[in-house]
Design a protein around this nucleic acid. Structure first.
Lengths: 224, 224
DNA sequence: TTAGGATAAAAAATCGATTTTTCACTATGA
DNA sequence: TCATAGTGAAAAATCGATTTTTTATCCTAA
């Protein structure tokens, strides 16, 4: 009697507030280092204490919050050293994943990848000043990178890359926008698709590393 | 007025049950695939519902439990494919970490490493049939491997390795004991210490890979 | 016999109230 | 002046009760 849609829609209050908090943490809607006032979060997200605390515990275990016994939850601070660590790990793990993905990816994957890139490009064109289109672009961007590495065959590799991506994006989204560089980055997405489909492993890996390093430079704007 | 000890002792009920549950999950005290009956856990660990649920949420975010909306928590199943993934990731990440650790490790680290190895050897000698000495050996073993890679300089690399270690140990501890292999593995610990202190990167990396692969073979006994 | 639907029991999730701990502030005495 | 103890307010953590959802069982009709 239930289809996949209903199953996904049947989110608990804890899962809903978990998603909303995750979005807001990565989107930079809390100050770095800020202590979270649980009572006001309760108001803001319109949930009770129990599901809210469950969500906070999940996010702390994931690394998007810091938890100290008897002292509640705190938004992690930003530092150049930590960003460098995150970016370097991302580079190493994504290179591994891309290499494996190019070995395993099939025709269907190529089709999905082209689709994801098309959606990203459309989101780029639609990009305005409103947070609506920005959030949509972020979604398409994340899905593009996910799709690129999806067929790598390692659940744990993908899991860690996802986690690093979330950490990285918190920095990137706090950094000042740089329109010249943004265009370069998007051109790299297109090149990545072409190189990946042609299975030019060396070229694709180099392009991905260049892409991550350039994003890293952009994201550094969040630290200073 | 508080020292580090008091701070650590000042654990919340949620943190205590989190630690206890983590220990029991890795120690194999639940059947793989088992659905956790929250009411009986509450009894068994002697805590209320809220701290228990917070602990379960943390463990699910960490990957030691599976959570399905409205359907509670389940112990992850075991599979050969997943173990292979975990072991292969462990091998790749630990090789990276060891290489960096040998670059950065100082005299103090060498001293700590010798100490950790000594404690592991003593725990080996004291090893009896009681779960008391076994749990102590597991602690010393974990601390030895932690210590070996500690100076690698990457917080995220160490975090992922720790997570994979916990996953791996769940398999290893379910596998039947093999005394001949156990002695080989312990000899490798000693070789690792010597190679690490002499900064023979190639040799140490090879030894670590051999060590992980042999452990992998042992752990496969949990799947069949 | 079996698919579908109502129903009761069980389990999960949530809520509001209570207890415990921390934090900010003041007062006291050396 | 400074360290320290005390005090009340605020926040975190926990508890027990309630609501919601799932699951198992039985019943009915095709």
């Amino acid at each position: 009697m239930d289809d996949g849609v209903n199953r996904e829609q049947g989110l608990t209050a804890a899962s809903q507030v978990h998603l909303a908090l995750k979005r807001d943490l990565i989107g930079g809607r809390f100050r770095a280092g800020e202590k979270l006032a649980i009572a006001s979060l309760r108001q803001h997200y319109g949930v009770g204490l129990s599901p809210l605390r469950e969500a906070l515990n999940r996010l702390a275990a994931y690394g998007l919050l810091e938890q100290e016994n008897q002292r509640g939850f705190r938004v992690p601070t930003l530092s150049r050293a930590e960003l460098d660590d995150i970016a370097e790990m991302r580079r190493r793990l994504e290179v591994q994943a891309l290499t494996l993905a190019l070995e395993n990816g099939d025709d269907e994957w190529e089709a999905m990848l082209l689709g994801a890139f098309h959606r990203l490009r459309r989101a780029d064109e639609a990009l305005g000043a409103d947070p609506e289109t920005l959030e949509h672009w972020e979604q398409m961007h994340l899905q593009f990178h996910r799709c690129l590495l999806a067929p790598c065959g390692s659940k744990w590799l993908l899991r860690f890359i996802e986690q690093l991506h979330d950490q990285f994006d918190r920095y990137r989204r706090l950094a000042p926008a740089n329109h010249g560089i943004r265009e370069t980055l998007d051109a790299q997405h297109e090149d990545l698709v072409a190189l990946a489909i042609e299975r030019r492993v060396g070229g694709a890996v180099d392009m991905l590393q260049t892409h991550i390093r350039l994003s890293h430079e952009v994201a550094q704007g969040a630290c200073t």
